[in-house]
């Protein structure tokens, strides 16, 4: 199937949506949790999501912040799986379990968190 004759590039429009105050706060929150730059996260979101999905981001983040336990919130799993849809629920569960296993096997909290962040980033880039 050919592309739409009048298809336009929506990257600029998506960026405008992400630059608004509540969207920016949501992106900053997840970027800080993942330990990456805001611009990197914006790029991923623009490539993967449509306009309505991005427009609805703050509402979904509000809902996601009220779910999950402390460990999940520390790793940003409710945001990643429910609000940003960058990970599937199964992937979220797997990240949490591996994080807890690392702590049980003697890794420091900081070390386990750093490894979990790396693992999440690899999953997102896949």
């Amino acid at each position: 199937m050919n592309r739409y004759l009048y298809e336009k590039d929506l990257r600029q429009m998506k960026l405008i949506i992400l630059e608004s105050r509540r969207h920016d706060a949501a992106v900053m929150e997840l970027a800080a949790t993942l330990g990456i730059k805001r611009q990197q996260l914006r790029k991923i979101l623009i490539e993967r999501s449509d306009m309505m999905f991005l427009e609805n981001l703050p509402a979904r983040c509000d809902a996601a912040r009220e779910t999950g336990d402390d460990t999940e919130r520390l790793l940003g799993i409710p945001l990643l799986t429910q609000a940003f849809h960058l990970l599937s629920r199964e992937e979220g569960v797997s990240v949490r379990e591996q994080y807890l296993q690392r702590i049980q096997s003697g890794t420091t909290l900081e070390g386990a968190l750093l490894e979990a962040q790396m693992e999440i980033l690899e999953m997102i880039k896949r």
Binding site: R21, R22, D50, M52, N56, P58, A59, R60
Partner: peptide, 17 residues
């Protein structure tokens, strides 16, 4: 500062997805 979140935003998203 002001930000308005209208009900059509989530409703249109849920409609399309």
């Amino acid at each position: 500062e002001i930000a308005i979140q209208t009900p059509s935003i989530p409703n249109i998203q849920v409609c399309s997805h």
